[in-house]
Deep mutational scan, measured.
Amino acid sequence: RLRTTITPEQLEILYQKYLLDSNPTRKMLDHIAHEVGLKKRVVQVWFQNTRARERK
């Protein structure tokens, strides 16, 4: 499986959303995924990875 490439514009939106809520609901994940044009699962994993990186 190929990795999904996230553009700088998408990253900017994801980080803005992360600052508002680091643990979004399913509904919010759907909305964010639609807004940035990525699959919900990709957005979900991005949030998981970002939370894990923050803990280190």
Rank of each mutant, 00 (worst) to 15 (best):
R3G: 14
R3P: 09
R3Y: 11
R3E: 15
R3N: 13
T4W: 04
T5K: 03
I6V: 11
I6C: 11
I6G: 03
T7Y: 04
T7S: 08
P8R: 14
E9H: 07
Q10G: 01
Q10M: 05
L11D: 13
L11C: 03
E12N: 10
E12C: 09
I13E: 05
I13Q: 09
I13R: 09
Y15P: 00
Y15W: 12
Y15D: 12
Q16I: 10
Q16A: 12
K17A: 10
K17N: 14
K17P: 00
Y18D: 00
Y18T: 00
Y18V: 03
L19P: 03
L20Y: 04
L20I: 10
S22P: 13
S22F: 05
N23A: 07
N23D: 05
T25Y: 00
T25D: 13
R26I: 15
R26N: 15
K27L: 09
K27I: 10
K27W: 04
L29N: 02
L29K: 02
L29W: 06
L29H: 02
H31S: 14
H31V: 13
H31D: 15
H31Q: 13
I32D: 00
I32Y: 05
I32F: 09
A33E: 02
H34C: 10
H34G: 12
H34N: 10
H34W: 09
H34E: 13
E35D: 10
V36C: 11
V36K: 00
V36T: 12
G37N: 06
G37H: 05
G37R: 06
K40I: 12
K40Q: 13
R41W: 12
V42R: 04
V42C: 11
V43C: 05
V43A: 01
Q44R: 06
Q44E: 14
Q44P: 02
Q44S: 10
V45C: 06
V45H: 11
V45Q: 11
W46I: 00
W46G: 01
F47C: 00
F47E: 02
F47H: 00
Q48L: 06
Q48V: 08
Q48C: 08
T50N: 03
T50L: 08
T50I: 07
R51M: 12
R51E: 08
R51D: 04
A52M: 08
E54P: 05
R55E: 14
K56I: 01
